[in-house]
Design a protein around this nucleic acid. Structure first.
Lengths: 258, 258
DNA sequence: GTGCCTTTGTGAAGCTACGCACAAAGTGAG
DNA sequence: CTCACTTTGTGCGTAGCTTCACAAAGGCAC
């Protein structure tokens, strides 16, 4: 398209090598890529179940809902696992992605907060299927402690530290009310946990080195509402900037967030 | 405060601004900004409950867990709602963000799939609190239809189209098993819904103009596992490439090529 | 009014991500 | 072997997001 961009075919490896070596197995896999790897893995498992031996980047990208160039670049960060003219071996690629994501080992997960959401999570099949094992269910409510859910007996949160230490829990899912989340978070990080999946609608404060991922239903809905509104009337209404009253939004309209 | 609103018929280009007119109400709010607005809103509501009248970008950014420059730039996309030397009026900013997100109007939401997750969602307080009203619960299982959950009676998915049309549902939450998700998605988009929140672990295919947001527990866990593994041993093991060695491509007992 | 202090709003630089387009590398036919 | 064809891996231009740093703007004291 732009012939001018084509440089004379001079060997390029004579550049100054002050930069760090790119190295196929570089530790620096972009976050955006990491976030897509599970998607590829899921698509590959679908292909595997149907017995497909190999797949092209085009087809796999289609199944995962991404651009094929992006897929190839993502996979190139793991190594050169494809065969030109053929594609990727499905089983082999499943193994490589699984290994990169750390799914070839077993992860003990504890769920704190066994309300509606906690129960749903405990019963969710997707956990066990890929190296994640629920090692404990904990709740602060004595009425819930002792219940049997998904084959586990709910324990009291007093046991939090001993459960984490005793069962080598490395990932904690927080499904408590918003008010309890930070306290639970403090305790589990103090106990050495460095990976947290938070469902409570609060911003968790964590020490350096601790990873928090957040799942927030209410935020997702609000983002949808924004786009929906824009679709409905080419953008927000230019209406008055402050509808009459002084206190039109007051305390109790929100905050019941849990 | 906003001169343009007070002089609706005055051509704006007469202002002595030589640059491109930034136009406070520019339609182009970056996606990254939109995704953070709900976060600010939540932090502001917390401040509001404590009766704080104004807040600086520094404090609000702290509460929302972001950089203060980013916060200011985000807010600047909505308009110039701060006062230099003072900060932002909490109530006023709550109103402006709510309006921009479309939360000043009522959104009817239908939840399809009333399993563990669907129940958890129906009982989740965060929905009703901010302009989102659950207008229908639907499930394909006759054993569930008729149950009363969170004040609503579960209806059969046969009623999907009539519920959507009859109750002006504009956002649908899909909490069905993965196998049913695409079918439900097809039906609701056909019925005119353009905003979907998908909890099923599949990539949904939707027509142009339909917005899908995805919440996927298993993907979040896998991302955590990746980082956890890296923390544990400075990166994935460089170990053997393929543990089984020989048996790479002998899964083709099915031969389902068509 | 003048001067000082605080805090916003934003230009500009740096960084990350995306996707096109194509050379390189492989397969398979003859 | 050569030739034709397929598909990967990646260089590169572009677009968008983040962060810094500072001028502009408002409040307050006097």
């Amino acid at each position: 398209m732009r012939p001018g961009t084509h440089r004379p075919s001079v060997p390029l490896e004579h550049r100054h090598v002050t930069r760090r070596i790119p190295q196929a197995r570089d530790r620096g896999i972009p976050d955006a890529t990491v976030a897509r790897l599970p998607l590829y893995l899921r698509a590959l498992n679908g292909l595997s179940e149907r017995g497909t031996p190999t797949v092209s980047s085009e087809d796999l990208a289609m199944a995962a809902g991404v651009n094929s160039a992006k897929l190839r670049k993502d996979l190139s960060h793991l190594g050169s696992y494809g065969t030109r003219g053929v594609g990727y071996d499905v089983q082999y690629l499943i193994y490589q992605i699984s290994r990169e994501l750390g799914l070839t080992q077993d992860w003990a997960v504890a769920i704190v907060g066994v309300g509606n959401l906690g129960r749903a999570l405990a019963n969710y099949g997707g956990f066990a299927s890929r190296g994640f094992r629920i090692a404990g269910l904990l709740d602060a409510d004595p009425a819930v402690v002792g219940d049997r859910i998904a084959g586990l007996v709910v324990e009291h949160t007093d046991e939090l530290e001993s459960v984490i230490a005793g069962r080598a829990v490395s990932i904690v899912v927080i499904a408590t009310p918003a008010t309890a989340a930070q306290h639970v978070c403090d305790r589990v990080t103090e106990a050495g946990v460095t990976s947290i999946l938070n469902f409570a609608p609060v911003v968790l404060n964590v020490p350096e080195g601790v990873d928090v991922r957040k799942v927030d239903l209410s935020i997702e809905l609000q983002i949808l509402a924004f786009h929906e509104q824009r679709k409905a009337n080419g953008g927000p209404i230019m209406a008055e900037e402050w509808p009459g009253g002084v206190e039109q939004v007051n305390e109790r309209s929100i905050g019941a967030s849990s």
